[in-house]
C-alpha cells in the first residue's frame, strides 16, 4: 500500500465519456480516488450511491471524488446511468488494474480492486489511504469526511 506523504502515483485513465483524466488534472484541489471491485455488483452500488447522496458535502469540503475500477468506459457509462450517479468513473481497463496496483488496491487472485479510498492533496501528495479489511466491507462516507478534516 502507498504511504501518506508519498507522491501520488501518476495515471492517465478514461472516464465514462472516454475523456482522459490524468494525475496532473488533479493539481490544485483535493481529490479522492474511490477504489471499488466492479460496476453493477451489489456492494459497489451501495458504496457509490451513498457517496452520491452527500456529494454536495464533499464539494463543500473542496473535494472531488473519482471512482476507479477495472471496468471499461462503456460499462462505467451504463452503470452511472442506471444508478443515477454523477461521480466520474475511471476505467483502469488496459493494462487491467495497472493504476490500482500502483496504489496498492488490486487483488491479483480475484482480478479486481480492493474497496478503499485515497485522498490526494492539491500538491499531488497522498494525504490518506483507507483499505477495507475485506471487499465486502464498504467504507462509510464518514471515513472520507474524517480523512478530509484531518
Amino acid at each position: 500500500m502507498i504511504a501518506p506523504g508519498s507522491k501520488a502515483p501518476d495515471f492517465s485513465l478514461r472516464d465514462q465519456e472516454g475523456k482522459l483524466i490524468s494525475l496532473r488534472d488533479l493539481e490544485g484541489r483535493t481529490s479522492v480516488l474511490v477504489f471499488y471491485p466492479l460496476d453493477f455488483s451489489p456492494g459497489c452500488t451501495d458504496q457509490l450511491n451513498i457517496y452520491q447522496e452527500v456529494l454536495e458535502d464533499f464539494e463543500a469540503q473542496g473535494a472531488t471524488l473519482y471512482g476507479v475500477s477495472v471496468d471499461s468506459a462503456f460499462c462505467h457509462k451504463a452503470f452511472q446511468e442506471r444508478e443515477g450517479l454523477t461521480i466520474p468513473l475511471l476505467a483502469d481497463f488496459e493494462p487491467k488494474g495497472e493504476v490500482a496496483r500502483a496504489y496498492g488496491m488490486y487483488i491479483d487472485e480475484r482480478g479486481h480492486n480492493e474497496r478503499g479510498f485515497v485522498v490526494i492533496g492539491p500538491d499531488l501528495v497522498v494525504k490518506h489511504v483507507h483499505k477495507s479489511p475485506t471487499p465486502l466491507e464498504i467504507p462509510g462516507a464518514n471515513l472520507i469526511f474524517d480523512a478530509l478534516a484531518a
Binding site: 454536495e56 458535502d57 464539494e59 464518514n142 469526511f145 474524517d146 478534516a149
Partner: peptide, 14 residues
Amino acid sequence: MSGDAEGSRLSSAP
C-alpha cells in the same frame, strides 16, 4: 445544507 456550521459536518459520530 452544507458548510462548516456545527452539526452539518459528516465526520464520524455514534
